[in-house]
């Protein structure tokens, strides 16, 4: 059993055991006329603050607050544990009122985006290694430009030889926009190869009109298209890993604000 698997089993067991303990404690408190809601509310508040502080920890790298990997593990499992705490706290009834509704809604969205992010960060890296060249996302535009230059140079033809009209026309009509920027984002997200296959088929279809030299150019163009498609795949997948945070993090701060107001309201309006 690898360390990673062992760690995952340990974490999952921690979440399940803690959930069961919390459920049992909540039921016991309810049956003794105590208020598990208040206790669970504080637990949930501190959980949210702890989860939100992960970003702060990353910005305070100079402080000896433990490794970022350890924080990430805590972030993941405390985040997963926060859902049963939320359900025990709020119950099956959906809250009413702006603040209560928004607090509940934001928590669920943040939790869901966190789970989606967790799934993406676990799913995408193996796929990235399995297709094309692994490149740094920030460099992908540069590599796209390099491929574009290479493709355009091929189409333009070598010195003293006129370019193939068929290939030139095809390039202008279909490949020019393809090589301009990362393309087919959603197709790559759903692992569809249809756009790339379409381009390759279009290139292949020109074979009957090409002489031997232009056919080599066409083969080279097809190779550029494949490599560009791999870059697009890398770009789409790596963007996914980064874009989910654009929902998760900003909504977390909104949740912190609403949760703080919820705490004030609950403490003020709840008579003990």
């Amino acid at each position: 059993m690898t360390l990673f698997v062992r760690r995952r089993i340990t974490g999952a067991t921690f979440v399940v055991v803690c959930s069961l303990l919390l459920m049992a404690t909540s039921r016991t408190m309810e049956s003794h006329l105590l208020r598990p809601g208040t206790w669970l509310g504080w637990l949930l508040t501190f959980s949210v603050l702890f989860l939100a502080s992960y970003r702060v920890r990353k910005q305070l790298a100079m402080l000896p607050l433990g490794s970022s990997a350890a924080w990430l593990q805590c972030h993941v499992y405390v985040g997963l544990l926060s859902l049963p705490v939320f359900l025990l706290h709020a119950g099956v009834q959906w809250p009413g009122g702006l603040i209560e509704t928004m607090t509940g809604l934001l928590f669920l969205i943040v939790f869901c985006t966190g789970v989606v992010g967790l799934i993406l960060t676990r799913m995408i890296p193996p796929r990235l290694t399995g297709r094309g060249e692994e490149v740094i996302r920030e460099r992908i535009p540069v590599f796209i430009r390099m491929l574009r230059d290479e493709a355009e140079a091929s189409v333009a033809g070598v010195k003293d030889e006129a370019p193939s009209e068929v290939l030139s026309e095809l390039y202008l009509r279909r490949l020019h926009s393809f090589f301009q920027r990362p393309a087919n984002f959603f197709s790559h997200v759903i692992h569809s190869t249809k756009p790339c296959t379409g381009l390759l088929n279009a290139l292949t279809d020109t074979r009957r009109f090409l002489n031997a030299r232009d056919e080599q150019t066409m083969v080279h163009l097809a190779d550029c298209v494949k490599r560009k498609d791999d870059l697009d795949y890398q770009y789409a997948m790596q963007s996914l890993i980064k874009y989910w945070l654009l929902l998760h993090v900003p909504l977390t701060w909104a949740l912190v604000v609403f949760a703080s107001c919820h705490v004030v309201i609950a403490m003020a309006y709840t008579s003990q």
Binding site: Q93, P95, G96, G97, L98, I99, E100, M102, P250, W253, A254, V256, V257, F258, C261, I265, A266, Y269
Partner: peptide, 24 residues
């Protein structure tokens, strides 16, 4: 965060029935 805070402040400052603060 700013929008959330504004919403909360509006809810707190609301005069009359504060249905926005009601939990249900």
């Amino acid at each position: 965060a700013a929008i959330s805070l504004a919403c909360c402040l509006i809810a707190f400052a609301q005069s009359g029935p504060k249905s926005s603060l009601s939990p249900g």
